[in-house]
């Protein structure tokens, strides 16, 4: 009897475990379907082509115009700028931390990077707003420091923990015999690092960069606080821009449920979802490549 009860209990628990196991799949599907449910009918009212390629985002004008090209360009400028800054810096820092730094310093630097990952994005945004933004304003002598450049710098900084720690893992995963073989041939450590370790760790580093970019595209609060949020197609780094994420965060509160504007924001969410889905998929593929080596 006790055994029978035990069997039933085990069975029930194992079913729950299985359901929890597939919960991740369920949630991914749920997220996408709710974005579509709320935003899908937007395309009955507005043309997909005009949505993606329209140059003007005037949701409140009459008739409203929902062209997200300026927002896509805004996000792109931020990603590009942040990437240019963060990728070389992040990879170099990862190299230094994993291959050069002595033990004590290594732990200290790693703790520093971890701490950066822990700082909430509003706090980073706030500090950027009170320090970096005025600095850029005076340094470039422009009317406002709320520019794409400020966003790029802040986000480069925020993508750093992702890029550094995943690159570091990739570098650490390079087998020792690679390094020892080259050392035995009389190569210096630095030569080994850029001729052997970097190429061997490349797939992992690419994954790190992809995930860093995913982080930048998805970041909302900090970018909203320092970029000025002007929905125009940017022509340079010293102008205000508005990203996809910031648009959702800033405007959702003002919309009427069920209106075109409301739906358009869900449609933007769906676009973001698809973009990050692709990026993460690619990153994951490269991560597996790195492991297989």
């Amino acid at each position: 009897m006790m055994r029978r009860l035990g069997k039933i209990r085990d069975y029930a628990i194992e079913k729950m475990i299985f359901i929890s196991g597939i919960a991740a799949i369920i949630f991914v599907i749920l997220i996408f379907s709710f974005l579509v449910r709320e935003g899908g009918s937007f395309f009955g009212e507005y043309d997909l082509k005009n949505f993606i390629l329209g140059h003007f985002w005037y949701p409140a004008s009459d008739p409203p115009r929902f062209g997200i090209l300026p927002l896509i360009m805004g996000s792109l400028v931020i990603v590009l700028g942040a990437g240019i800054l963060a990728v070389p810096l992040g990879v170099m820092a990862a190299l230094y931390i994993s291959e050069v730094a002595p033990k004590g310093l290594k732990d200290l630097l790693k703790a520093g990077v971890e701490m950066l990952a822990a700082i909430p994005s509003v706090v980073v945004g706030f500090v950027g707003m009170v320090t970096l933004v005025p600095f850029i304003k005076t340094a470039f002598n422009i009317p406002t420091g709320l520019t794409a450049l400020s966003g790029c710098i802040m986000l480069a900084f925020m993508a750093m923990p992702t890029i550094v720690s995943i690159s570091e893992d990739a570098i650490n995963a390079v087998p020792w015999n690679y390094k020892e073989g080259a050392l035995a041939l009389g190569a210096t450590k630095w030569q080994i690092m850029y001729r052997i370790i970097l190429p061997a760790a490349a797939p992992g580093i690419i994954a790190a960069v992809m995930l860093g970019i995913g982080r930048v595209i998805g970041e909302t609060m900090a970018v909203m606080m320092v970029t000025g949020n002007a929905a125009v197609i940017p022509s340079g780094f010293l102008e205000p821009v508005r990203t996809l994420t910031a648009t959702i965060a800033a405007e959702m509160g003002e919309t009427v449920r069920g209106s075109s504007h409301y739906k358009s924001l869900f449609a933007i969410g769906a676009v973001l979802f698809v973009i990050t889905f692709i990026i993460n998929f690619i990153a994951d593929t490269y991560l597996h490549k790195n492991k297989e080596q």
């Binding site: 991740a24 949630f27 991914v28 749920l30 997220i31 709710f34 974005l35 709320e38 995930l211 995913g214 595209i217 998805g218 970041e219 909302t220 994420t245 959702i248 965060a249 959702m252 924001l265 869900f266 969410g269 973001l272 979802f273 990050t276 889905f277 990026i279 993460n280 998929f281 990153a283 994951d284």
Partner: peptide
């Protein structure tokens, strides 16, 4: 799971 980790936080808000 990888994707869930990568979904932008504001999209979670929409969801």
């Amino acid at each position: 799971i990888v994707n869930l980790a990568g979904v932008p936080s504001v999209v979670y808000g929409l969801f």
